[in-house]
């Protein structure tokens, strides 16, 4: 099982590769793209230049560095696109193919079909935009030539295991650290990048805001329920997402790769997060701790990293026993 780590700046490359990361993914936001399409029509579901590589030269540096260290570089083009964006994307992809990018992470079925038409032979991964929530959806992806599926972050461990057992030869990637939006990536229609367009530094993700809430009810609804509803809504976005404990299950289930979220996170912080996952993964691979000891190790790692106890609301795989606090 490999770690798939995010990248936005070529200066982050060596520290990541030094940690033994074997897969790296990044988006590319060129000046041309930004000028032509703006920030809200992003090329890769992240907004602002700090979350992306900025030009083909940086892409080349990244691919070369990965090749030299036995790692694979994947290019993220996981937005839903307008057809007028296809030629600009194809240009990027042809360059990426020549540079030796190992796969494309996609989220738009129409774009995938377009790439097949254009005889792009690079392996295609279906990202969370593919909404692969059941086995038949995965069959469809396979028939469309997808070689890896990045399973939605809302799946349960039981569902992931079923996927793995039913499709033993399909590459599968699951989420493991950071991020964790409560909304389903592939079914969410919030705009991102509005504040960035307006020049406001603070993010404006609809899922992370605090809302004033006025309830309409029918029949008997307890005040305790409305209180709790309010709490759930206003503690939704957890950028402190974690699924470390599940590394044990993923290793034994045979998941191919685990994804760390956060292309936009500043370099040192990003690398610190990868270190946490790497350490935990090494323990699992070398079978150094029992399952229970490993869970305790993960909880402790979470406490040290985020400086708070792990909580169910921040847990990717909450069917595993987590901390005690509630949202």
């Amino acid at each position: 099982m490999k770690i798939c780590a995010p990248l936005a700046d070529v200066n982050e490359l060596n520290p990541l590769l030094d940690l033994g990361v074997e897969e790296i993914y990044a988006g590319l936001l060129t000046q041309m793209w930004e000028e032509k399409f703006g920030l809200v029509l992003s090329s890769s579901r992240r907004y602002g230049s700090s979350a992306h590589l900025k030009d083909l030269r940086q892409l080349q540096t990244a691919v070369k560095a990965c090749d030299g260290r036995g790692a694979k570089f994947f290019l993220t083009l996981n937005e839903r696109y307008e057809e007028e964006q296809f030629p600009a994307l194809l240009e990027i992809i042809k360059a990426a193919e020549q540079l030796g990018v190992k796969a494309l992470i996609l989220g738009d079925l129409g774009f995938l079909l377009y790439l097949r038409e254009k005889q792009i032979l690079m392996p295609l991964f279906m990202g969370v935009g593919g909404n692969v929530f059941n086995l038949q959806a995965l069959s469809l992806c396979r028939e469309l030539g997808v070689s890896r599926v990045i399973l939605p972050r809302q799946l349960t461990l039981k569902e992931i295991k079923t996927f793995r057992q039913t499709f033993p030869y399909m590459e599968m990637e699951t989420f493991i650290f950071r991020g964790l939006c409560p909304y389903i990536d592939g079914l969410c229609r919030f705009w991102h990048g509005i504040n960035a367009t307006l020049g406001i530094e603070q993010e404006d993700l609809g899922c992370g805001l605090n809302y004033r809430i006025k309830f309409t009810t029918r029949g008997r609804i307890s005040p305790e329920l409305t209180k709790r509803y309010r709490q759930v809504i206003n503690h939704r976005q957890s950028f402190t997402g974690c699924g470390l404990c599940a590394l044990w299950e993923f290793h034994h289930t045979g998941i191919d790769s685990v994804k760390i979220v956060g292309r936009e996170i500043p370099g040192p912080d990003k690398i610190a997060g990868v270190k946490v996952v790497k350490k935990a993964l090494d323990i699992v691979k070398q079978n150094l701790l029992s399952r229970e000891e490993f869970r305790e190790f993960c909880r402790e790692s979470y406490r040290k990293f985020y400086r708070k106890n792990c909580r169910e609301i921040a847990c990717y795989y909450p069917e595993l026993p987590a901390g005690k606090s509630r949202p």
Partner: peptide
């Protein structure tokens, strides 16, 4: 039996949960 009307200035329009 329950819906919530959500308001935040950054959204600028009432959402229904």
């Amino acid at each position: 039996k329950i819906t919530g009307e959500l308001w935040n200035e950054n959204i600028g329009f009432p959402l229904i949960s």
